[in-house]
Design a binder for these strands. Sequence first.
RNA 1: UGUCCUAUGGUGUAAUGGUAACACAGCAGAUUUUGAUUCUGCUUUUCUAGGUUCGAAUCCUAGUAGGACAACCA
Length: 547
Amino acid sequence: MADEKSLNFIEEIVEADLAAGKYKTIATRFPPEPNGYLHLGHAKSICLNFGLALKYGGKTNLRFDDTNPVTEETEYVDNIKQDVQWLGFQWAEELYASDYFPQLYEFAVKLIKKGLAYVDDSTSDEMARQKGTPTQLGVNNQYRNRSIEENLRLFTEMKEGKHPDGSKVLRAKIDMGHVNMLMRDPVIYRIKHADHHRTGNTWCIYPMYDFAHGQSDSIEHITHSICTLEFVPHRELYNWFIENLEIYPSKQYEFARLNMTYTMMSKRKLLQLVEENIVNGWDDPRMPTLSGVRRRGYTPESLREFCDKIGVAKRDNLIDISLLEFCVREHLNKIAQRRMVVFDPLKVVITNYPEGETELMPSENNTEAENAGVRQMPFGSELWIEREDFMENPPKKYFRLAPGQMVRLKSGFIIKCEEAIKDTEGNVTELHCTYFPESRSGSDKSGLHAKGVIHWVNVQHAVPVEIRLYDHLFLKEDMSSIDDDFRNHLNPDSLQVLPQVYAEPEVAKASVGEHFQFLRMGYFCMDPDSTKEKLVFNRTVTLRDSK
RNA sequence: UGUCCUAUGGUGUAAUGGUAACACAGCAGAUUUUGAUUCUGCUUUUCUAGGUUCGAAUCCUAGUAGGACAACCA
């Protein structure tokens, strides 16, 4: 029996529409506002929108929702495009809501002519008061009765720049007593004498979200306009405009946005982290932004797998970060070459190995990948091992080095600890060990068995590198549950820098963005901060630890 | 004291009126030249109360709980 994957509720809608012949092919869109960087929540939306078109044979537009000139910048546009492509998707058309400004203006005029829009001179405070509350109906004001001619004249004047910011707005004339607050004569155009990142100062009036989004969908003949749950109340307005403008009926569907433990997805708050230098930019590897997780070492494949695994539904959710970590480990395990790097060095002297001599030990790059080959690791009489791989008084199930105890040096020899050398304060400064020449990796004739296997680096050939270890940005599992400032919950240890650790020589050949598994230490990715003199590696994720 | 949305293991997601399942997490064990990977097993679930039905996680009603809605933001 074929294992059919069940459909999410949006796929069910699409299949039903297709089966009913409602559409020959579908069209979706990904519509970010270029006022910040994309994050994991956007990845969910991207995978959904592009995934639908890919699955059912349709197209997806990338549309920038750039109707507010004061918050939007070209820098954001460029990065958003880069992020979408990096995730592995290609849009059919690159479009901008601002491309539709002339058309949107005509839509507004049409509404005025139908007696369905009016110019209001009230202040925003007055309008807020007249609007009522969710439990208290709104009231009409005197501007609501303006004639079509006067509205037309005033709206033209607004467009011509004859009125200052905030002095007038254009409102849809719907119902101030409507149970849905959004239907109480929503503002559809406001005056902003501001430079727009694309249209410059061509316009001084700009449409509001509700008067741009649905119309843009309609202009592009988007069949399924998919957004998050907070837009549910907007759907009624969305449909009202389409109906009264008599334009192509795109349909809006809403799904639950992504929430994850120990982080937050609010663009506003992420901007704050950046502006207040709490993190080092939008691409700080601790950020849930796509540029952040990319720099951290997450792969597009693992992100797409993650989006697939979390599903799409309508109930609020809080996804455990460990699921994301599982996805990235699963992918990196298959593609990341293995290297040995000692983070907290303890010197081992092999007393029966000829001093100054070197022999090359081949070591598998990745047994999970076919044809990954081997690299040579220089073995010698002085090695670095991890300090925590030695214990003077080990507990019963400690498999590593202790006085008189043996371990296997991965891809090397079995060694036995003969003596721990200490300084005057009793700290272990180095270990004197002997090795068993017959235990050479790959051709072991020693008959010895060492349960523990540890990584190592030759002192003579060690390459110093910098390591950056990351932990959750926040200490609180559910950041939506806090009622105080989110900055009170920052994890003070979210970044730990190890300025100089010892890597095997092969590491020097790494390139920016390359993924590695540093044996027993985790998955790492070379950071763009790397220079010829000093390579920098970010820990993407730890290895699963069942010690 | 409104309208709308939602309610399935610890966390997600399925089951589309017919045996509640999958993944993650957790816990055991096997294998292992990474205490990784791989493999095996285990723990844990339909918000409540009525109703419809031979049969309800699913349909209906009410309650309860959580979320959204009162920007010239999107």
